[in-house]
């Protein structure tokens, strides 16, 4: 069933298992306590950052599959993507598996796009178990989008820190404590922000657009949710997001942001975490385990992505952004 841009899943696919790997900086925060693997070394024993990112993603996927009690043969598809050009981490990680792979690119919102597509496949009966996964690495992202790591430049105060980490979850038609009820497809929004360091401000309108459309389509109010989770708006972006919700008459008090939460201290120099790994790590560690434990019953997860490249920003284009939302439910009967 579909209303507006929201798909309602008739069979309510379940999140069968989940796994997350986080880097050494993330280890000190919330993610470190809940992630399956918290790395002490961001290189993960590899020679390049890209290989380390690929290995994190690959291990997160195999951990999730393992925790779900599945074998390679029982998984119908892997839906995965990352931030690097030609999504090399995801594609290269897929070499390690025997199941089919569908590559996605939705920048930092890849986790929710993966979950919604996996849920659609499972709900439609085309698949039994689908894995949604994504990850990012600070050093590889920095190298691609900004400057060499050793370049002695200052980070502007509105900038965010790309999360080193990967997360994966198995969406299944069978067992699972958390289920996916519906999903709202994102529209690309661009309100003209050109500052590549200010991702939060660029992405907030896309997040607000998707979340508000979700409320309208599902006839829900923000109070009906235990949490409204956004991906990586950061402290500044979250504030803008809250303002945008207020403006439209929605109460933003249940809103939390993965980027704001992931680091132990949001230093005043930067606004929190960003990157595909940010929401992937937080959802697949802290949030899913808390939902499983019954702390949160109804959650809206809207990861946000900035769809820019170095070429587009070099040509002076503004930053188009997207946000996909999935509604999750735990502690249901049956």
């Amino acid at each position: 069933m579909k209303k507006g841009n929201t798909i309602f899943f008739a069979n309510k696919p379940k999140v069968r298992s989940y796994a997350a790997i986080c880097g050494s900086k993330e280890r000190e925060g919330v993610a470190g306590r809940y992630a399956d693997v918290a790395l002490a070394d961001d290189m993960y024993g590899e020679s390049t950052y890209e290989k380390a990112e690929c290995k994190m993603l690959s291990n997160a996927v195999s951990l999730a599959v393992e925790k779900g009690g599945l074998t390679d043969g029982e998984v119908d598809a892997l839906l995965s993507g990352d931030l690097l050009t030609q999504i090399i981490s995801a594609s290269f990680a897929a070499r390690d598996f025997q199941f089919p792979y569908l590559g996605l690119y939705s920048a930092c919102s890849t986790m929710s796009e993966g979950m919604l597509l996996a849920a659609a496949l499972v709900d439609g009966g085309y698949a039994k178990n689908c894995v949604a996964a994504t990850g990012s690495h600070f050093a590889s992202a920095e190298r691609q989008y900004r400057y060499p790591l050793e370049l002695g430049c200052t980070r502007p105060p509105q900038s965010q820190w790309t999360v080193t980490g990967a997360g994966a979850c198995v969406v299944s038609s069978q067992s699972g404590a958390v289920r996916i009820v519906n999903a709202t497809l994102g529209r690309v929004r661009d309100w003209g922000v050109t500052d590549v360091n200010n991702m939060g401000a660029a992405m907030a309108p896309a997040a607000a657009d998707t979340v508000i459309r979700h409320f309208k389509d599902t006839d829900a109010q923000p109070e009906d949710y235990d949490l409204i989770i956004t991906g990586d708006l950061g402290a500044l972006g979250s504030r803008i997001f809250k303002d945008l919700l207020w403006e439209k008459g929605y109460d933003p008090s249940r809103h939390v942001d993965c980027g704001e939460m992931i680091y132990k201290v949001v230093e005043d120099e930067f606004q929190g975490g960003s990157g595909a790994g940010c929401s992937a790590v937080m959802m697949n560690s802290y949030f899913f385990s808390k939902m499983q434990a019954g702390l949160y019953k109804r959650v809206l997860f809207a990861a946000t992505g900035a769809l820019l490249s170095t070429v587009s920003s070099g040509q002076g284009e503004s930053i188009p952004c997207i946000s996909h939302a999935v509604e999750l439910e735990a502690g249901y009967d049956g």
Partner: peptide
């Protein structure tokens, strides 16, 4: 894209007002 959507002057003003000092 940009003109078709709301390239929102007010929004940009609001964002720059919020920029951390």
């Amino acid at each position: 894209g940009r003109n078709a959507q709301n390239c929102n002057e007010n929004y940009l003003k609001y964002v720059s007002a919020l920029a951390p000092p």
